[in-house]
Amino acid sequence: MAPLTVADLRKSYGGNEVVAGISFALKRGECYGLLGPNGAGKTTTLRCCLGLAAPDSGAITLVGEPVPVRAREARMRVGVVPQFDNLDPDFSCAENLLVYGRYFGMSDAAIRARIPQLLEFAGLGGKEKTSIRTLSGGMKRRLTLARALVNDPDLLILDEPTTGLDPQARHLIWERLKRLAASGKTILLTTHFMDEAERLCGRLAIMDAGRIMVEGAPRELIKSQIEPQVVEVYGEDAPSWAQAEAGAFAQRCEVSGETAFCYVADAVPLLDHLAARPRLATLHRPANLEDVFLKLTGRDLRD
C-alpha cells in the first residue's frame, strides 16, 4: 500500500485555481519533496492530503484511507510538522508532548514512556520541564518534529521544515530526517531550498502555478532537464556581452542583474573566450537543482 496517492487534485479559491490537477504517489520508505516558489500550491496540496481542505475534484488516499471521507482515521498514522511553529507556549517541553499524544487517544502512561526518547531524538534530552518560551527557534523546530513523532507515524509530512533556521539548526534537522528515513518512515516535505531537496529527497516534484512541471530523482532531473555545465559571468559589461556574444558559445544564456548564466554542454570554448576579457569575472560549476528549478519556474519574483 502506498503511503499517499494523489490523483488529479484540483482546488480553487475564489475562481483562482491554486492546485490545477496534480498527481503523484509516494513509495513506502522514501523521502519525497514538493518544490516550488511561494504560491505554487504546496501548502494547499498538503492541506487537502490531510483532509483539512476539501478538494474541488480528484482522489486522495492517505495511509490506505480515502480522504477527506476518512481523514481522521488516516491522521492516526501520520505526523505533521507545520510551516509555522504552533507549540503550546503555556507548557513545558514534556507537557507539549503529553497533551499532543492525548489527541491520538494515547494513554498518559504510554505517552510518558515515549517522552524521554522523543526529547533525546530532538536533541532536547533532559529538558522535560523547560518552558517553550525559553527555547531557540531551532529547538522549537526540533520539538515540533518530536511532537509529530509522538504517535510513531508511518508517514511524516513536513511543510518547509527548515525555513527561518540558521545553518547549524538546518543541518541538525536534516540529519534527524535522514535517520527517520533510514528507520523506514516515509517522508513528504515541501521546501524552496534546493540544497535541502538535493540532500534529502530520493524523488521530488517541481511545482509552479498549481501544476507539477517535472518529477524524478534530483540527479536525473539535472541530467535530463538542463545542460551539464554552468558558467556564471559577472560584471558591468556582462549583460551587453551576453546579448552580443554569448549565443556563439552557450546553448542558453539568462541574464539577472549584472550576472549572465550560461548553460553549456562543453565549457572550454566559452572559458577560452572569456579569458581574453579581464573585465568579466567568471565562475564555472556543474549544473545543480537550482538551475533546473529556475529554468522551469523562471527568475521573476513571487509574492
Binding site: L50, V80, P82, N86, L87, D88, G105, N151
Partner: peptide
Amino acid sequence: VQKTWEAIMNAPVS
C-alpha cells in the same frame, strides 16, 4: 494567534 487549533487538527481530532 497561537494556532493551537491548527496543531490539534493535524492530529485525528476534527
